[in-house]
Design a protein around this nucleic acid. Structure first.
Lengths: 333, 333
DNA sequence: CGTGCGAAG
DNA sequence: CTTCACACG
């Protein structure tokens, strides 16, 4: 059995599971439909090379079981679902049908990082019915950028930290709800050769932590996103060889420890303190994802006083479309 | 019937013609072979998305009839075959198996333009047995560049015009043979908004023409390449709307007229003075090639005294792999 | 529309 | 290895 996604001239025309032997006719149809071009007659143009992309072994997101029976420690069932995903370019993600995940998972709030796209260039296909959408991009074209989908309209949405030096890269969106603040962040990567480690450790980390502390004074905080750090050795496949790599330097790990010491909880590690091999990012290089040579860089960080409301935190490692996979938090609020 | 070329992870695994109905089993095999990944076990990595590119409606170059019975005016059969092709990036061209054209056509000399590649980055796959290869690239990475394949080793190969201001972009290769000079050129494009029209008309065109005249004093010249001009209205699909477009300005057309007035012949137009719709370039935009909305930008220009040796000049419009197609000249020499 | 590049991850 | 931007065509 193998999964195939077929797109012609960048338009996905089929996603399906093929069982060999039984499906030769089906495969022929699939190929014919692609070879003849997209359905719209106007686009035909006989004789032109039509380029199709086929991806094999991509699980169909609509067939994944996203149900969850998790409860709080005192037995209350979850009533709010949050998801977070670094999508590595919303335009590429959209072409790969990444947004079909939204309907399949159907979270109350979905946070996206690395949209790499200005608001007015965001493809229309990502407008999913039933969600309000909020987008933030920075000064640099095609770099960074975050987004937030919400079933319920937030009381207020704020962009950035309110600190100029941090707010040029479209990294933080804060949405205020009745009972909590939702914050999504795409934390600055220290970079190859660690050129931005100083900025990250000395400027960003303290200011971002202070920002969350400030919010936490008013309402409990649910913060999520790509924090660009694997906190402990258990959070990446190769801790030994990565002590000087962006995402696992002592400085970055310390920043995360500091954050947690200020009254916040890493919800995944809280629930699964011993779980190994739980990663949310795999480099595209060297087939890392297939070998699960990954990093846990994506988190739901919650205010300590939300611990009694915590039901579950799941890593959706079977969802493709980016070098990160989505993560989902279940809460009773 | 449809032509399919299938490559997995950038490695072409199959090029074939599919006849619907008869070939369902074959298609199934094709898909299985791709879905299971390339043959080499070491590359496998189960569970990873494998990306395949499929191109439909690409004629198989090995099935094209390149034979030619043409003779000179006084009835002598051709004994030398020359081809020229602007390949729009030798690396992309190679991935598309563009070089299979060389074996299929088997010209004595093949000239390439727009290789867009430094000598040491040229893929090994283009090393075709039986040919000497000569490469020229300019200062700017991934820009311009020319190449020459020759079955017979030339007496001498020279690069550029010997004029510094013209020789930084890898545009001209001259190969001296016993009976003639072979010159291939990628003439500077005037550019969108015609920023380089002045350079092209006032500097390049006169110097290049003078260069050819100089060679012509010693031996007859066969010059070919992308001259980046459609000479007359008959040489492009939309002359009316392109009078101010690069490639059809009065200045560029005049440059070509000047060249021909200095004792050179446009071999194609010499043979087919009335033939319309004979183009060698089609923009990728708007399905231009399928509609034959093209330009004749590629030429074999020969010394007037070679006219008695001219057998034929054919435009290989069924050969894909670039936004230009190859052209082939048959001579009795 | 498609090439190659370079920055970034 | 993949994204996007940009230059160039």
């Amino acid at each position: 059995m193998v999964n195939i996604r077929l797109s012609v001239n960048k338009r996905i025309i089929s996603t399906t599971v093929l069982f060999w032997r039984e499906n030769q006719t089906y495969i022929a149809d699939l190929c014919r439909s692609f070879a003849m071009g997209p359905k719209r007659k106007s686009e035909e143009g006989n004789g032109t090379p039509k380029k199709a992309k086929v991806c094999a072994d991509i699980p169909d997101v609509t067939k994944i079981d996203f149900s969850c029976e998790a409860k709080t420690k005192d037995g209350k069932k979850w009533n709010m679902k949050f998801s977070s995903w670094n999508i590595n370019g919303i335009r590429a993600w959209c072409e790969k049908n990444g947004h079909s995940y939204i309907t399949a998972e159907s979270p109350d709030i979905l946070c996206l990082q690395e949209t790499k796209c200005e608001k007015n260039k965001i493809p229309r296909d990502v407008e999913i019915e039933g969600y309000h959408r909020y987008w933030l991009s920075g000064d640099k074209e095609g770099y960074s950028g975050t987004g937030l989908y919400s079933k319920v309209k937030p009381i207020e949405v704020k962009y950035g930290l309110g600190i100029e030096k941090h707010d040029k890269e479209g990294r933080v969106i804060t949405a205020e709800y009745e009972k909590f603040y939702m914050v999504t962040a795409y934390v600055p990567n220290a970079g190859r050769g660690l050129p931005r480690l100083g900025y990250r450790h000395d400027e960003w980390d303290p200011d971002f932590t202070a920002y969350l502390k400030e919010l936490d004074k008013k309402k409990p905080v649910i913060m999520c996103g790509d924090l660009n750090v694997a906190h402990k050795e258990i959070d990446l496949a190769n801790p030994k060889s990565n002590k000087k790599s962006a995402g696992f330097t002592p400085e970055e790990r310390e920043g995360m420890t500091n954050l947690l010491s200020e009254g916040f909880v890493d919800s995944f590690r809280e629930l699964y303190p011993e779980e190994k091999g739980a990663y949310s990012f795999w480099t595209f290089m060297g087939n890392a994802r297939a070998k699960n040579v990954g990093w846990r860089l994506d988190y739901f960080i919650i205010s300590e006083r939300l611990k009694p409301n915590l039901c579950d935190n799941v890593i959706r490692k079977d969802v493709f479309g980016s070098d990160h996979c989505p993560i989902t938090l279940f809460m009773n609020l």
